[in-house]
Amino acid sequence: MRCENREALLAAALVEAADTLTDGFETTAHLRRVSDRCVELLGARAAGFMLIDGGRTASLAGSGEPCDLALDLLRAQSGGGPCLDSCGTGRPVPPVSLGTAHAGARWPVFTELALRHGVAVTFAVPVRGRGSLLGALNVFTAALPSDAQLVLAQTLADATALGLANHHAYAHCRTLATQLQQALSSRVRIEQAKGMLAERWNTTPDTAFLTLRGHARRHQLPLDTVARWVTDRTEEATRLRRGPEPGEGPGGRS
């Protein structure tokens, strides 16, 4: 791969790894795309991510040839493997030659499957965002990687962690904004309903509010639902009867 092409591919990979501020974001598909870039940049047989949540595997995503090779290798690590080790310690797992007796004894099931698919070497790097361990990136190759390739893999993992953390913050802000908008809309609707009932019954807004609240409580309904009946002029709104609950007054409004 020519140097300028490699630099352009790396730049595109880093942008893609961090590009997560979209409403249609889907974690598995995103990690699969980053895995594609990793395979292409490192000349690997396969690469994949294992994300964790509360110490448990939350999702797997990978790329390789055949296309499900990375997923097979990640799933084979339930009894031990480089990605699982990195997730457990939060540290990189240096390149391991799988043809050695040590590798076979360390991860027997994983090693057997990897060798069967022509994977001679594997290593893993942590995916850590803002102080929290999110998972690990596992790379499967036919030869020992260079130091530059190890740095590149960690760089992609770091960019991925940044993208995932940013999406989490973005989604949280969107949720809060939606909740605030719903609360504001509900409050506006209740005020509108109070005004409409007060005008219809020639009474005060406080009395109208007590009627709305009393009906909602008696029928175990959200106050906003009853207010919507009034503003939408539905048939249910005709069930409302003027007057506060017995013993209630304007001072009892909450």
Rank of each mutant, 00 (worst) to 15 (best):
R213F: 04
N202A: 12
H167F: 15
N202G: 13
K194A: 03
Q154G: 00
L176N: 12
L156H: 10
L212Q: 06
A177T: 11
R174P: 04
T207G: 04
R217D: 07
T207A: 02
L176K: 10
T178C: 07
T203L: 00
R174I: 06
N202T: 06
H167E: 15
L156W: 14
L156C: 06
L197P: 13
E199F: 00
T211G: 00
P222M: 03
T203A: 01
D206N: 07
A177W: 07
T204L: 08
H168M: 12
N166D: 13
D224S: 15
D158W: 00
T203Q: 05
L176D: 11
H168V: 11
S186F: 06
A193D: 00
Q182I: 00
A153L: 06
D158E: 14
L223H: 06
T175D: 11
R217Y: 03
K194V: 01
K194E: 14
A208Y: 03
Q181W: 08
W229T: 10
S185T: 14
D158R: 02
A159S: 08
A227Q: 04
R213K: 03
N202M: 11
A165I: 01
L223W: 01
T175S: 10
A183Q: 08
A161I: 08
Y170T: 01
N202P: 02
P205N: 01
H168Q: 15
Q181D: 13
R174D: 10
R189V: 07
R189H: 00
A198S: 14
V188P: 00
